[in-house]
């Protein structure tokens, strides 16, 4: 194990997709103040795939939410596509994400009243264009759900719902995709299929992937593996990722 800053060798000419320095997050629980993230550093370059591992309750999801600008840090510097996130308000952070960031949530976050097709179309509808439906159809086809377009989430299995979530994350052709336990609720075969989808899309579109996972198979497919421990990130060698 070594500090992330030692292992990271960035090209000075390239703007990192994501960069965090001294990032911290404290929450108040009753009279106690809990430190979830403490002085954390991270840099992710375009096209890179990074897995973040950690035990339950280590703060992986909190970290992902901070990195995506869904929540605000207590202190530290954080830049997304070279723009400092803490300086932006909620609208500014949303505008920065628009069309450039995809998100695969741990619990899918599909709208229960919309069909699979409508769920995938949702992020596209924030932008003008005529081909929203066709693009959503294409992506659902790519994740193997071309025949399930009109099904509601409750009519799909957990794996199928996760694939809808993946299609939704990629449908805007984002530069960066965050995925929170993308295979956490899935059986091994379905999980593998999802992993294949993610990395295929990563390869084809050059999308940067930041994954939070418990799954060592998924972690080993990433270029870098980091462990969140005591509120800080430490780099793991491939052989340190336990099967």
């Amino acid at each position: 194990m070594s500090d992330i800053r030692d292992t990271y060798a960035a090209s000075a000419a390239t703007i990192p997709t994501l960069e965090a320095r001294g990032l911290g997050k404290q929450v108040t629980s009753g009279e106690r103040q809990l430190t979830i993230l403490d002085d954390l550093d991270l840099c992710v370059m375009p096209g890179e795939s990074v897995a973040i591992l950690g035990s339950s309750g280590a703060g992986k999801s909190t970290l992902l939410a901070l990195l995506a600008g869904l929540d605000t840090p207590s202190h530290g510097e954080l830049a997304l596509f070279g723009t400092a996130l803490p300086a932006l308000d909620e609208d500014g952070r949303a505008a920065l994400r628009a069309g450039r960031v995809g998100f695969v949530f741990q619990n899918f976050q599909l709208l229960p009243t919309l069909t699979a097709l409508e769920n995938v179309m949702l992020p596209l509808e924030l932008t003008p264009g005529r081909d929203h439906q066709q693009r959503a159809r294409d992506w659902l086809g790519r994740v193997g759900l071309g025949e399930r377009l009109d099904h509601l989430p409750k009519q799909l299995s957990g794996g199928e719902q996760q694939r809808v979530a993946v299609a939704r994350a990629f449908v805007t052709r984002p530069e960066l995709v965050f995925a929170d336990e993308p295979t956490g609720n899935l059986d091994r075969d379905t999980g593998s299929a999802i992993i294949e989808s993610l990395f295929a899309l990563n390869r084809e579109a050059g999308t940067t992937l930041v994954l939070v996972t418990h799954d060592p198979h998924l972690a080993r497919r990433c270029q870098r593996c980091l462990r969140l421990d005591g509120g800080r990130l430490v780099a793991l060698e491939p052989d340190e990722v336990q099967a």
Partner: peptide
């Protein structure tokens, strides 16, 4: 609840407060 879910997702996808 449902609306909170929707607006949260739209926020993630990049919608501003005005929109």
């Amino acid at each position: 609840t449902l609306r909170a879910h929707e607006s949260g997702l739209l926020r993630v996808f990049g919608a501003g407060q005005r929109l």
